[in-house]
Design a protein around this nucleic acid. Structure first.
Length: 273
DNA sequence: TAAATCCTGTCA
DNA sequence: TGACAGGATTTA
């Protein structure tokens, strides 16, 4: 799915376009996208105003004027699009929030794995937040915290980076790109990394995520921002989905393997096991 | 720790 | 026709 840079791009787009808007009506044709049920979401959201848009990892949090929130997860193919009333229907548009000022917030989902979930108490919110590790690009993601997490796990480093309980927001693209930049093989055991390697990896994760946000994310597949535009970061990828191509550093052919069930791209020369 | 699952589309 | 796809949880 959209990972941290893509979801952050969407968050900023929503912040600029729907903050202060009133939700007038919700239309849908796939009930399972609205949790715990379409009726509960309608009951809580209709008539309220959107007060702010937050993000934790890959989860968007839309705050409502009644104190409740909507958590939106885009999984692999979800999109949030802001359109004028009457614009042509978007592909895979399954939920439409009709807003005031002739706007619509549309949830498009090809594979239907994503969701819009009502969070109707502080306790529920707390519970959700507690399931995420530190958020990169914030003070919580200190080198010390990072080292503690990495050195305390004996799983493959890529799996550790992608587990949202360890740290928030990294998915398949940015795990592969960060490990390449730090010259670490994705199957290295997490607790085998040297102090220097952890420091480099920490630095590269932050650099790459920042850079990807700057270019509004990666659209190798179906990701789009709130206006339906693609992100430009894909042209800076060094290994992701580039198997068979030469490594930009040493020219060795980039390999694709499977790690933790996910397609994994790396340079066998730069990233030794 | 791996595979199946939730879905639909695309590519080899 | 089958394998695979930015995720994450559940089951074997």
């Amino acid at each position: 799915m959209p990972e941290l840079p893509e979801v952050e791009t969407i968050r900023r787009g929503l912040e600029n376009s729907v903050t202060g808007r009133k939700i007038l009506k919700i239309e849908y044709d796939v009930p399972k996208l609205l949790l715990p049920s379409p009726q509960k979401v309608e009951q809580a959201a209709i008539g309220t105003k959107i007060t702010d848009i937050k993000r934790i990892g890959k989860l968007l949090l839309i705050s409502l004027s009644n104190g409740k929130k909507l958590g939106v997860h885009l999984k692999l193919t979800g999109r949030l699009l802001v359109r004028k009333k009457g614009s042509p229907k978007d592909d895979w548009q399954h939920v439409t929030m009709i807003l005031d000022q002739n706007l619509e917030l549309r949830f498009s989902e090809l594979r239907k794995f994503g969701y819009i979930k009502l969070i109707d108490s502080d306790n529920e919110l707390k519970k959700i937040l507690s399931e995420f590790g530190p958020e990169p690009l914030t003070p919580d993601f200190s080198l010390e915290a990072f080292k503690k997490i990495i050195s305390g796990k004996k799983k493959k480093i890529k799996e550790v980076l992608m587990d949202q309980k360890n740290m928030a927001g990294i998915g398949n693209i940015y795990a592969d790109e960060s490990l390449f930049a730090a010259k670490i093989h994705p199957e290295r055991l997490s607790n085998s990394l040297t102090s220097q390697e952890m420091e480099t990896l920490h630095k590269e994760i932050e650099r790459i995520l920042k850079e990807a946000i700057k270019y509004r994310g990666t659209s190798v597949d179906s990701y789009r921002d709130t206006e339906g535009n693609k992100g430009d970061y894909g042209k800076f990828h060094k290994v992701f989905r580039l198997e068979g191509k030469p490594c930009p550093i040493c020219g060795t052919i980039i390999k694709k393997i499977r790690v933790g069930g996910r397609g994994t791209h790396f340079c066998p020369n730069c990233q030794k096991i």
